[in-house]
């Protein structure tokens, strides 16, 4: 079993893209559909190597989730990378302030995602 990566995104298309790319590279992918779900998945999976998280999601968005996770300390040491579209520098700043390690612009290339995950989840 490869390292466990959590992807939090309300778009099943995006989740699918991430899942396919990462599972081909030997990772185990856990999916969550929004921030709420993501938060509970983080608590349920203590062996996460990394979290990839969308910004705009219903119920609880990525930033809210990040903040909650950051405060609770439940994902301490687990690198969190935000998925974002190109028009939101301010959101990225906010995410970084809340402990996000980095950000990836959508749409992304699968091999780039895998390479980035390899570096961060190492």
């Amino acid at each position: 079993m490869g390292k466990k990566i959590l992807v939090v995104d309300d778009s099943s298309t995006v989740r699918q893209q991430v899942r396919i790319a990462l599972s081909q590279a030997g990772y185990t992918v856990v999916e969550a559909v929004d921030g709420m779900d993501g938060q509970s998945k983080i608590q349920a999976n203590s062996d996460l190597a990394m979290v990839i998280c969308d910004v705009n999601m219903p119920r609880m968005n990525g930033l809210q989730m990040l903040e909650a996770v950051h405060k609770s300390g439940s994902a301490a040491g687990v690198p969190i990378v935000m998925l974002t579209s190109e028009a939101q520098p301010a959101l990225i700043r906010q995410a970084k302030a809340n402990g996000a390690k980095g950000w990836i612009v959508k749409p992304f290339k699968a091999e780039m995602l895998v390479a980035a995950v390899k570096k961060l989840a190492a």
Binding site: V81, P89, I92, G102, W103, I104, A115, A116, K119
Partner: peptide
């Protein structure tokens, strides 16, 4: 640019990814 350059400086993310961003 500033943001993407910061991520290069942070060094967490893959350099190629940062450059592509």
């Amino acid at each position: 640019f500033e943001l993407a350059w910061e991520s290069i400086m942070d060094g967490f993310m893959l350099l190629e990814l940062c450059i592509s961003q």
